[in-house]
């Protein structure tokens, strides 16, 4: 009976997964770059496709930056659980006494640190390129920081549901897009209302509430989805 009585520290697995994934990403640094490059290139192309006058760009800048950030996040989701599924790490996660909720949360945190956060950090630069009015910079950075975290959490469910599919990208996009819609609406409009002088507090509060809810629900749902898809 002695072994069964040993309580293993619950945080150990969580910390180990964070360290493992951060190390992996650091050794393959070029992987972080791809959503960022996508973000940069698409924003660079935008004025060339429409009219580069300051007035038009300033109107569409908050929405465009948000949409491109959303697409860049979406682009990176497919690989969230892919390698763990292919090499059997997922089975080890499920069969460990560590709660799967924490393991999923650890993976989501690393995903956000390596995609969402860099996007939020370079967003002001793109704001300058799109002549974003001066009142919009802080709301843009803060709303993107919270918003990309929500999108990573929601995306984890989509990635978990589609990890066992051969061509998952389209299915992933289809099931995740409707769930991203409220985040996009609230995020982009937070920036626009800040520029219009209405203030960003309401939007940021809504985003914060959404983040709290997503942290509670999404890793749980994704853990359930991983248990299902791990065997097929």
């Amino acid at each position: 009976m002695s072994d069964a009585q040993h309580g293993y520290p619950l945080g150990a697995g969580f910390r180990a997964i964070i360290r493992r994934d951060l190390t992996s990403v650091w050794r393959n640094r070029s992987d972080i770059a791809s959503p960022l490059v996508f973000f940069l290139i698409s924003i660079t192309l935008l004025p060339l496709g429409v009219d580069p006058s300051d007035k038009l760009l300033a109107t569409i800048a908050p929405g465009m930056i948000w949409i491109m950030a959303l697409l860049a996040t979406l682009l990176s989701l497919d690989s969230l659980f892919r390698q763990d599924y292919d090499d059997g790490s997922l089975t080890q996660f499920i069969l460990s006494p560590q709660p799967l909720y924490l393991t999923v949360l650890a993976k989501v945190i690393v995903h956000w640190l390596t995609t969402g956060l860099p996007l939020a950090i370079i967003a002001p630069l793109l704001g300058v390129m799109l002549s974003l009015p001066s009142g919009g910079y802080w709301p843009l950075v803060i709303s993107l920081t919270i918003g990309t975290a929500i999108m990573s959490l929601i995306g984890a469910l989509g990635a978990a549901l589609t990890v066992c599919l051969r061509s998952s990208a389209l299915v992933l996009t289809l099931i995740i897009m409707p769930l991203y819609l409220p985040v996009l609406i609230i995020g982009a409009n937070t920036v626009s209302s800040a520029i219009a002088g209405v203030g960003a507090a309401q939007g940021l509060a809504l985003l914060g509430a959404a983040l709290a809810m997503a942290v509670l629900i999404m890793p749980l749902a994704a853990a359930g989805a991983l248990r299902i898809s791990s065997n097929h």
């Binding site: 072994d3 069964a4 493992r20 390698q83 059997g88 006494p97």
Partner: peptide
Amino acid sequence: QELLYLGHQVPVKPQLTVRENLLWLGAL
């Protein structure tokens, strides 16, 4: 806690060293 399962897949991450792999597997 009392189970050790080794399947036919090999959860050894190519980017990590041998020790790092055993550390994360062990931490679970």
